[in-house]
Amino acid sequence: MINQNSDIILSVSDLHATVDGTEILKGLNLEVKAGEIHAIMGLNGSGKSTFSKVLAGHPDYTVTAGEIVFKGQNILELEPHERATSGIFLAFQYPLEIPGVSNRDFLRVAFNAHRKARGEDEIDVFDFDDLIEAKLDVVKMDAAFLDRSVNEGFSGGEKKRNEILQMALLEPILAILDETDSGLDIDALRTVAGGVNQLSTTDNAVVLITHYQRLLDYIVPDYVHVMADGRIITTGDKALAQELESRGYEWVLEDHRAGVTA
């Protein structure tokens, strides 16, 4: 929901980033306010996933210029776990399997890390169990999943639901969903989207990175951005996504080239 008076949560300006010496982000600008839902679309290789990883602080990426200001603080010097505890959450495109760590323990350790960062006491196993079981409803997940190893043997849909469960638990201020919809069947997509909608409030914000307009039928974005060559080249509302769906990306890219050369 757009409200011009809302606080700016995220402000990215002229962001350049490289991986293995290759520049992927080439001057990206984005501003996200509280209550807003942004969708970032674009072809493969446009830099969408790189952007999400740079926000979360993935060590393989080097920021060479620009800044990322989150809640008024430049976060480029923060470790990934510090970004997380300050309120940034990345839902992974390919959530990792962690054999031997139960989902329940993983969630508790993560939750307590957040509490510790806020100067609060860690909560014990029993209180945590009550808390997490209440959250399961958000993604319609069976409690049995809590006692399995993190994501091990989970189907694609179960892994994505598990990401949203983590989001429900950690209550981020900025959630970045990196192709959370890719590869999901329609039921799983509805469940995941329903979870995100439930968690979306006027105090937080969501950035959806997606290939497909279909997700945006279930999570309605306030802004749709198109990325190409490491930059956001155009921004519109949800109608832009529908246009991309019917006409493809070529016209946006051509308009952009024309604009650049004009």
Binding site: A56, P59, E79, P80, H81, R83, V109, A110, A113, Q166
Partner: peptide, 10 residues
Amino acid sequence: FYLQSRGISA
């Protein structure tokens, strides 16, 4: 990194 992104230090 996955664990770090959930607030757990390296």
